[in-house]
């Protein structure tokens, strides 16, 4: 078996002095005295920009990610309020209950029905996501065989009463602008 050996990098004079590196580090610190970038957002007076649904968010990100961060948008992989995607008039969901089955918090409730559209066999009569139970783990998105459920970047989930946080099919199908 060949022996493993490591050779230590030899520093030249400039590197061994460490002085330049120290000054460079200090420079970063000093720069922040003059150049100010805002990181904290004073919610709710200030809010992050919310982009449509996740797919739209991704498109924007692909174009110019840096610009988006400057505009203080919600990040691409943020998991917020759910949405059911729609192809034309027809919802993609076939009420297969995969998301309901995989959900660790029993937050999803589905009741299937015979689909009125001939192209699909079944569709959800009731599709309910209980946001008070949901932990936004995103398993439902992973499980969906039809890519029907996604999670948007909508983060401001406030309600006066608990039932308002149990969102129904109609609300899930409207894309947040």
């Amino acid at each position: 078996m060949p022996e493993k050996s490591m050779t230590k990098k030899k520093y030249n004079f400039k590197e061994a002095l460490y002085l330049i590196e120290i000054l460079r580090g200090l420079g970063v610190t000093i720069k922040h005295f003059f150049v100010r970038k805002k990181f904290a957002i004073n919610y709710p007076e200030e809010t992050l920009h919310i982009v449509g649904n996740t797919q739209q968010t991704m498109k924007v990100m692909d174009k110019d990610a840096q610009k988006l961060i400057d505009r203080m948008e919600v990040t691409m992989n943020y998991r917020g309020k759910h949405a059911l995607l729609v192809d034309g008039d027809l919802g993609r969901c076939v009420a297969c209950k995969m998301c309901e089955t995989v959900c660790p918090f029993f937050a999803i409730y589905i009741e299937p029905e015979e689909s009125p559209d001939p192209r699909k066999e079944r569709s959800p009569r009731i599709f309910e996501v209980d946001l008070t139970r949901c932990a936004y783990c995103g398993y439902c998105v992973e499980a969906c065989p039809e890519n029907a459920i996604t999670m948007t970047s909508f983060y401001s989930l406030v309600a006066r009463q608990r039932p308002e946080l149990s969102i129904q099919k109609k609300e899930l199908r409207t894309v947040i602008k």
Binding site: A95, K97, T101, P112, E113, E114, R122
Partner: peptide, 9 residues
Amino acid sequence: FRFKERVYN
């Protein structure tokens, strides 16, 4: 029983 419930539930 059609579309009522998944059998594994």
